[in-house]
């Protein structure tokens, strides 16, 4: 059973329930059972004894291990502030980023002075939630080669409830599409062209021959990234990125979960219909592309 409540509305006056998100308990004045009252407008959800209210839109409340896409707002002494759409800006410590070349050492004063060479204000980055502090502020880290600066692509913001936690958030849509999608759990989606196979194929052999595998891997990956960022995106690649973007927007309009399969399905349907990427968001086109809810 699900019902909709508004702030101040009594959900239940029976005892024995646990207070979840979006609710509070008020002692009744006549000494009866305490009441459970909603404090946001949304849908009541019950899991056994736990009652919570899920609002339609909410700020991002992180969980450890989440992949997020955010924008650097401030470069501080030893940390970056990153806007991830939460209550407060998330914190990315200098000690929790990868140094160039994958070096493992203590961060020195020189590193502090060079923080802007890693990330500067208004850079987009992908990162993982390392820790949630007592007051709800989020601490990030980018200590993996897959995280870091995002360049040469397109950012899209969707309601965060539509991005569920998946096994894989870095998605490469199969070759006919050839587009990389980064699904941030904070509702930010990054879309860019996939690395061409000939780039990765050529360099990985060189990496294997090297003695210091880890270092060279980091270096080659960095080189690849730089190459990717510097190579202009061609017209047909742009069109594919645009089509993927519009496929995600279509899913957003239908309020359907944004998953790799769903994106690929909408993409395929639009290609089948012979639609140009720019026409996908017109009213009639949207209706025909919307995923059917019953299957």
């Amino acid at each position: 059973m699900s019902s909709i409540v508004v702030p101040g509305q009594v959900i239940t006056a029976e005892g024995g329930f646990l207070r979840g998100h979006g609710t509070y308990i008020q002692e009744s004045e006549d000494g009866g059972e305490p009441q459970l009252i909603a404090c946001v407008a949304g849908v009541v959800e019950r899991v056994n004894k736990l009652i919570s209210v899920r609002p339609v839109k909410s700020r991002y409340i992180g969980e450890v291990g989440d992949l997020v896409v955010g924008r650097v707002t401030e470069v501080g002494g030893k940390r970056w502030k990153v806007d991830v759409g939460g209550h407060q800006d998330a914190i990315l410590m200098l000690s929790s980023v990868n140094l160039p070349g994958g070096a493992q050492r203590k961060r020195t004063y020189e590193d502090q002075l060079q923080m802007r060479t890693f990330f500067k204000e208004n850079d987009l980055i992908s990162a993982e939630v390392q820790q949630i502090q007592q007051d709800g502020s989020i601490v990030l880290h980018t200590r993996s080669l897959k995280y870091g600066k995002l360049e040469n692509g397109q950012l899209l913001r969707v309601p965060q409830v539509l991005v569920k936690r998946l096994k894989q958030h870095f998605i490469t849509l199969a070759p006919p599409i050839g587009v990389d999608v980064v699904l941030g759990t904070n509702g930010r989606v990054w879309i860019t062209r996939a690395m061409p196979a000939e780039w990765t194929g050529g360099t990985s052999e060189g990496a294997d021959m090297d003695t210091n595998v880890l270092t060279s891997k980091a270096e080659t990956l960095m080189q690849l990234r730089r190459l990717h960022a510097e190579t202009p995106i061609l017209r047909d690649e742009r069109e594919r990125i645009c089509r993927v973007r519009n496929a995600v927007v279509t899913l957003q309009h239908a309020f359907a979960l944004i998953t790799p399969d769903a994106i690929a399905a909408v993409y395929a349907r639009s290609v089948e219909a012979g639609m140009a990427a720019k026409d996908m968001l017109q009213a009639e086109a949207l209706a025909s592309l919307m995923p059917q809810l019953d299957n």
Binding site: P7, G22, C39, K57
Partner: peptide
């Protein structure tokens, strides 16, 4: 405030 999903005791 309610539309912004900010937690309120009441309207």
């Amino acid at each position: 405030l309610a539309n912004a999903s900010i937690e309120l005791f009441d309207l």
